[in-house]
């Protein structure tokens, strides 16, 4: 019940503040922009420069999913940093909600949105041919990735500036989704430990059980470590 009230309050906080509303709805705008690019710009580039974008659609889809989850993760990370600055996080820790309850509420909010937006993005862009269960898994992994980003910012940064530095650096994690394009052996091997790589891998092999299992495990390992780090921090 407390959780529900808190989530309701979060929703109110977000939609009363026009800035937060914009940030939360921004991923949908990204989807629309990319749909327009696919319709108008890509055919133009294909005819003008003889470059076929459709060969790289799996990377495009992975990039968009990572962009959406990264964006929501950063927004929620900064929301939590603001809570930290305003001592709201400490205040929540002494309520029946507790430290973990506060974390669950804040992060579930962005991850649920991310899950929904990912499904919308895959269906609206319609550039990859994957079964429904793969769409669900990709959306779930994107949701977990948004939590990972939010937690990395919140637990790694002491203040807003460090948060921005983290956000800047974390954007670079997206590059691992494209590691196969670089044909660098060491870089491809390094990519295996990063969640973003597995988003592309699952899109490329939508029926591969091993890709599903390893990809999900990598996401869960990152998530578990970050939650453990947060809860064990005094």
């Amino acid at each position: 019940m407390i959780n529900l009230i808190h989530i309701k309050n979060d929703l109110k906080q977000v939609f009363r503040d026009p800035v937060m509303s914009i940030l939360m709805l921004a991923p949908l705008l990204i989807v629309v922009v990319f749909k327009l690019l696919i319709f108008f710009l890509f055919p133009f580039i294909a005819t003008k420069f003889n470059f076929e974008f459709s060969l790289y659609y799996q990377y495009l889809m992975a990039g968009i999913l990572i962009l959406i989850s990264g964006m929501l993760g950063i927004v929620i990370g900064f929301m939590m940093l603001d809570d930290k600055d305003g001592n709201i996080a400490e205040l929540m820790a002494v309520t029946p909600l507790g430290r973990s309850g506060y974390l669950v509420n804040r992060l579930s909010f962005s991850s649920i949105l991310c899950f929904i937006y990912s499904i919308i993005a895959i269906y609206v862009l319609n550039v990859i041919d994957v079964p429904f269960y793969t769409i669900l898994l990709l959306s779930l992994l994107s949701a977990i990735y948004s939590i990972i980003i939010g937690l990395l910012i919140f637990s790694g940064a002491d203040d807003k500036v460090k948060g921005l530095t983290f956000a800047k650096g974390l954007n670079m994690l997206g590059i691992f989704a494209f590691s196969d394009l670089f044909a660098l052996n060491w870089f491809s091997i390094l990519s295996l430990i990063f969640p973003t790589y597995w988003i592309t891998r699952i899109i490329e092999s939508p029926h591969s059980v091993s890709a599903f299992l390893i990809g999900t495990s990598i996401h869960i390992i990152w998530l578990s470590y970050l939650i453990y780090r947060y809860l064990s921090k005094k």
Partner: peptide, 9 residues
């Protein structure tokens, strides 16, 4: 008042 506001602006 916060970074999110700044980013949108």
């Amino acid at each position: 008042n916060n970074v999110n506001q700044y980013m949108v602006k």
